[in-house]
Design a protein around this nucleic acid. Sequence first.
DNA 1: GCGGCGATTATGTATATACATATTGAAACA
DNA 2: TGTTTCAATATGTATATACATAATCGCCGC
Lengths: 246, 246
Amino acid sequence: MSMIGTMDVGEPLSLHQRILSDISERILSGTWAPGHRIPFEHELTAEYKCSRMTVNKALSQLAKAGLIERRRRTGSFVRRPQSQAAVLEIHDIRIEVEALGLPYRYERVARHKRRSGAEDRALLELDSNGPVLALECRHFAGQRPFAHERRLINLAAVAEAASEEFFAVAPGPWLIARVPWSAAEHRIRAVAADRNIAAALDIEAGAPCLVVERRTWSAEHPVTHVRFTYAAESHTLVARFTPSQG
Amino acid sequence: MSMIGTMDVGEPLSLHQRILSDISERILSGTWAPGHRIPFEHELTAEYKCSRMTVNKALSQLAKAGLIERRRRTGSFVRRPQSQAAVLEIHDIRIEVEALGLPYRYERVARHKRRSGAEDRALLELDSNGPVLALECRHFAGQRPFAHERRLINLAAVAEAASEEFFAVAPGPWLIARVPWSAAEHRIRAVAADRNIAAALDIEAGAPCLVVERRTWSAEHPVTHVRFTYAAESHTLVARFTPSQG
DNA sequence: GCGGCGATTATGTATATACATATTGAAACA
DNA sequence: TGTTTCAATATGTATATACATAATCGCCGC
């Protein structure tokens, strides 16, 4: 008689999820090392007394999550992750400031509409020299400047932006509400504050800053490029990784 | 970069995947705006002339990916993402250096075994005052220092580390090969180089640096805490987001 | 030996079916 | 009018079944 008798002591997990967490537990705890062949579907079917479909669903999910690799005719094997991947959450600045318990304030510093120059096209990864909107803003946490924002919006992709002054609403939330983004790329680095940034953030020139640049596409079209600069003390990005398992 | 929505004519998509990409396409293109109720399973069943199970599998996957929200009795709705989430890939430093086309070199600076102090316990999120291994290393790209590493290893979780000198192999890959990690947390920020870091990275004190701190757990036990410090010019983190779609 | 060719086997995908569960809306009732 | 109850409905989960596909093994003939 095998080990089936484990009565659900607590929350009612679906069978499918129990199989899933059982197996990932065994993998993550090292009981099944990388390369180890995990039981065949029909064996798990016997172990959990369920149909192959249920086992298959769980194993397929583990495969999609990258924990195991499935090979026809030979079975499923524990994979070693190639590179650590972590989920970086990037919230709206207002949310971040309010999470600190400080009052948020937004300020539009400058706004220019222009035909895109070489630099604009490089930043947006734009082909044509269509019109862009260039914005400069500041975000405050209480009295202190929290972040400086420098943004380009591709007016070919978001025509409505041309008639928005961005006095009251920050371009980030404005865009999010209007343009569904399909892809984004972030670049994160440290820089020394130049005179412009130093003045905007009320810090000394040369002080370390965290820069987050984001490029966003919507259905293949470049939408916006934005560079946020934070004074070093004011901001930490957090990224977490926990393997799949819903 | 590869984007969704690119119609791959030619390869045989499974029905399940066709439904999946059809729907995410309609969501991401804005055809179905946030809040929009997408067709009921039985309607999609008719549209794609397939069983409810197939439709259900696709919709469940979209729900797990966060693109839609499913509510019993009322239907499935297009969700607005609350926060942008991006996948941050964190490679081994050797890989990063070699990707730059530069020769990689590793140097162990210091190694101390000790009973964990208050600071160690805070960094590792450790309860007891068990033994830890403290390491300091440098990673070189060509002639120049590329990163400074300061690491704590919880010897209660990884006893073998006590007998490893880490002269030849860097602790990162050594751990990866031995300890399956089940969770990790990254904190990214900018700092000014202190005297120690400045000397280690051969930069001036006060120069901006990018700091990546990572805490790793294996099956609930803290394994290691590591702080990588990069000179500002030398390193940029890249994070991408492309909505699910398997 | 050695190369090709089925048979076997494990996974991949899809189907029809069944029942569980949560939620809504309306009917029944106090 | 307010509350309780109940049936309708959409999703959640599981089953048995079927056939497709890919990879491996072993047999066979040369």
